[in-house]
Computed example of a mutant assay.
Amino acid sequence: MIDKLKQSFTNFKPYINTFEIPYIYSVLIPILEIDNNLHILFQVRSKNLKSQPNEISFPGGKFEDTDITFEKTAIRETCEELGIDEKNIDIICPLNIFVAPFNMIINPFLGEIKDFESININKDEVDHIFLVPLNFFINNEPSTYKTQVNIIPDKNFPYHLIPSGENYKFKTGTYDVLFYEYKDYIIWGITAKILKNFVDSYKKRK
C-alpha cells in the first residue's frame, strides 16, 4: 500500500493549497528598455469593464486549463490585451506568488517587451497604457494604509462542533494597502503590492 502511495506522488509538484479558491490569475510585469533606461508598462483598464473599470493594472488574467502553465496565462493575456505577438515577450523569471485574503492567488512573471512600437492595445479591455521609469519606484516608497481582516462566520456556522462555541476567538489580521503616485496616476492595491515586492527583490540583487 505504501508503495502505491509513493508512486502516486512521484511527480507531485507542491503549490499553495487552493481549496475553495476559485480565482487563480497570472500577470506580467512588462519591462522595456528605452534610451538605455528601464521602464515598467502599466495599463489603464477600459471604463466599460464590469470588474475594476478605469483601474491601473499589469497585463494578465485568469488561469485556464488550456494554458497548461501559469506562465502561459501571463503570455496569452498580455498578447490579447496589448495586441502583440508572443515572440515580442521574453520571460525573465517568475516572481513571488501573491495570496490575497479574498479567494485570489496571483502568479506574477517578470518579462521584457522587446518592441514597444508593435503594441496595439485591445480597446475592449484597455483604455490606454503608460510607462514609468523603474528608478522612480527604486527611489520612492509607496504610502501604506492598514485595513483589518476578520472572520465573520455564516449564520449556519456549526459553533457546537468547536471549542468554546460562539465564544471561540478566531484569528484576525491586518492587510496593508499601498499607493504610488506618479504624475496623474495612482498605482495602488494588488498591483502596487506585486510591484513593491518586485522592486524590493531587485534592489537586493543590484
Rank of each mutant, 00 (worst) to 15 (best):
N37W: 07
K171N: 07
L5D: 08
S118M: 05
I105A: 01
L134V: 08
A192E: 08
R76S: 08
E181A: 10
F198A: 04
P22G: 01
M104A: 07
F63G: 07
Y175I: 09
P14A: 02
P163I: 02
H160F: 09
V126G: 00
E33N: 14
F98I: 11
L28Y: 08
I29A: 00
F109W: 01
V27Y: 03
F198H: 04
I121D: 05
G61H: 05
G165L: 07
K4Q: 15
E20T: 12
Y180D: 14
S143R: 13
G60H: 03
P153D: 11
D115E: 05
N120R: 05
P14E: 11
K196G: 15
I91W: 03
L95E: 11
E20I: 07
L28Q: 03
G60L: 09
P59Q: 01
H160W: 15
E125F: 07
W188Y: 15
V132Q: 04
N48I: 09
N135L: 10
K13Q: 11
Y25G: 04
V126I: 00
R45W: 05
I56V: 02
Q52R: 10
N11I: 12
E86G: 05
D90C: 14
K62T: 14
K206F: 15
E71A: 07
F157M: 01
Y159L: 13
I187W: 01
I186G: 15
I31M: 11
T10Q: 14
T144Y: 15
L82V: 00
I40F: 02
K183I: 09
Y180I: 01
I31V: 13
F136K: 02
T73W: 02
